[in-house]
Write a protein that binds this DNA or RNA. Sequence first.
DNA 1: TCGAAGTCAATATG
DNA 2: CATATTGACTTCGA
Length: 345
Amino acid sequence: MENIGNLHGVSHGHQTSDLMNSQHARQSSSHRNLVSHGRSAMVSSMASILEGAGDYRTDHSLSGPLHPAMTMSCDSGMSLSSTYTTLTPLQHLPPISTVSDKFHHHPHPHAHHHPAHQRLSSGNVSGSFTLMRDDRSLASMSNLYGHYPKDMSGMGQSLSPLSNGLGSLHNSQQSLGAYGPGAHLSNDKMLSSGGFESHAAMLSRNEEHMARGLGGHGNGLMTSLNGMHHHSHPHSQANGAMLSVDRDRQTVGGGQGGAGSGQVEEINTKEVAQRITAELKRYSIPQAIFAQRILCRSQGTLSDLLRNPKPWSKLKSGRETFRRMWKWLQEPEFQRMSALRLAGE
DNA sequence: TCGAAGTCAATATG
DNA sequence: CATATTGACTTCGA
């Protein structure tokens, strides 16, 4: 018994418990927290620069009825949830010490994470990080992850949406298109339904492009703007208009969304799966990496999800996984990368 | 108690 | 090496 119990509990335990799974207690490592750290750090940096920091963050909060923990959460799940709460305030001020504090109170057996985020924090704070500078981000990424950037350089250069990334993206999407508008399914409310889907893609892509294209502030502004302005309504913040669109529909469709706590996003799992697959290929990110760092799942699981995505309606706790993927897709490239890097570091 | 959903780890395959 | 498949396990709801 114990063996098994231990094995399971300790060996794998990472799962986060998502919302309902509650499998927490798995092994994991704990470094997942790093991600959150990294993120907050980044946010802060942005915030500092833009001043809209709070807003930016807000956006997360808003969009995140789900994201709260998801964004980073992988292992500690519950603990994190609380952490996340704490994080909110943190975001406003990125005092490293504070951060450390929060972390510390976590049972962190591993030390190597700390250094990692520390350095990040400092970087951000000092501003050297300047997320805006895609160059920088890229550079950093390159350092950490040689291959990711490989395509990016190309993409980055071409502002034209169709040139690179989009081109391929479109491809995939087009294939999806069949089910998109045609909608033999019930995608009426799907996150990416029909034409809108392409828009979404474009938008998100644009973000990335802008990031590098506009250079610094441009991107930041956008992001923050998107996220900020209307904090009044909990709809649409994440990154873009697209979201708002879907959100609206979803809200309506879902109806009970609930007050906030339950985001009623309906995600087109099939599409997300395709997009993720495409992105992973684009950046040469192995499933194993993405699965672990972003989804906190195993490679096999990811593979299965990507190949045989179940319809949103049939998903239960598995939705969380798709939300994470979706979330990731919505993030600006540099964030995606940093998430990958950080989580893995 | 049973079945479904989700995962994982191991293993097979390309 | 990366991805696909599979068997076993856990959790959850009837």
